[in-house]
């Protein structure tokens, strides 16, 4: 299944929030929708879920306009919150039923997910008696219980301890393996980098970068080498201005041309005490900062 947003435009009053947003997310792969605060991520997600209508543009599933009666969407909003005063099983079953499940099936599914997320003991408690992390897990059930085809997770790792983050990762991997479209939105680049096969970066209502993460990284000019060596001072002295020290103590050598790579690598290995030498690949963080900062070129 392929989810596609095509040329979505949306204004609130005079404020143009989305100026032609297009991206594709494939089933069985995780997709990361990145962007700074106010870039239009939440609006895009809401249009995708039919909370708002777009001024123009389409939401497509396998090139056909999406049919919301047939395609189930699970959503974990960034702003967490359910009914604080209500019994957990009651409200979770209610949300699953609203998504079209029968009462019986809803209870069964919710019980499965409470068990899977290790929060069964809170089943008959009120939500506001739980810790924040556990409330978050409860909220995750609302996104998963009705077995949706598309899962949208907005900042899913915020507020989770490492053990719970691991649990969530496993759950998400399971869902991806089942062939579902999983759409992440997060500011925590390390998680996106770990999970997402493809990304789209949204800046000021426009998609400024879209594609497979590997391709994006490979398409960066491969004209820098990262070097970890015992005698870095000697290298620094020999390479002069083309060599700099990185924050972690490694050296970075800028080549005049990517084709020099092999020659420089051999020269390094033969002449110095080298522990590691590799082509510099930007982290997602570097890419994000480059494309989403204020002075980023709008049409890159």
């Amino acid at each position: 299944m392929i989810l596609e947003l095509k040329n979505i435009e949306k204004s609130f009053g005079d404020n143009k929030v989305l100026k032609g947003v297009s991206f594709k997310a494939e089933g069985g792969k995780a997709f990361g929708l990145l962007g700074r605060n106010g870039a239009g991520k939440t609006t895009s997600i809401r249009i995708l879920m039919d909370v708002f209508r777009a001024n123009s543009g389409e939401v497509l599933i396998d090139s056909q306009p999406i049919n919301y009666d047939k395609i189930g969407i699970g959503y974990l909003p960034e702003e967490r919150g359910l009914y604080p005063k209500k019994i957990i099983i009651d409200q979770l079953a209610y949300f699953a039923e609203l998504k079209g499940m029968s009462h019986k099936a809803a209870i069964k599914s919710v019980d499965y997910w409470l068990e899977r997320l290790d929060v069964t003991e809170y089943r008959n408690k009120r939500l506001d008696t739980l810790s924040k992390g556990n409330q978050q897990k409860i909220q995750l059930v609302t996104a998963l219980a009705h077995d949706p085809d598309i899962i949208i997770l907005d900042e899913p790792f915020a507020g989770l301890d490492p053990v719970n983050a691991m649990l969530l990762k496993d759950v998400v991997k399971e869902q991806i393996a089942k062939g579902k479209v999983v759409l992440f939105s997060s500011h925590q680049m390390n998680y996106i980098e770990e999970f997402c096969d493809s990304i789209a970066i949204l800046n000021k209502g426009k998609i400024v970068l879209h594609g497979e993460l590997q391709d994006i990284k490979r398409n960066y000019p491969r004209d820098r080498l990262v070097v970890r060596a015992g005698n870095s001072n000697a290298i620094l002295a020999d390479f002069g201005t083309s060599c700099n020290v990185m924050e972690n103590g490694n050296l970075i050598i800028r080549l005049t041309d990517a084709s020099e790579k092999k020659a420089v690598m051999i020269r390094l290995v033969e002449n110095y005490d080298i522990d590691e030498v590799k082509v510099f690949e930007p982290s997602l963080n570097d890419i994000f900062v480059e494309f989403a900062s204020d002075d980023a070129k709008e049409d890159n």
């Binding site: 809401r46 879920m49 909370v51 969407i73 959503y75 909003p77 702003e79 967490r80 919150g81 359910l82 009914y83 604080p84 409200q91 949300f95 609203l98 998504k99 909220q139 609302t142």
Partner: peptide
């Protein structure tokens, strides 16, 4: 209450 507790975020996408 639904709005301030943000239960609305899920509700509005469900119903």
């Amino acid at each position: 209450t639904e709005k301030s507790s943000r239960a609305m975020e899920v509700l509005i996408t469900s119903a």
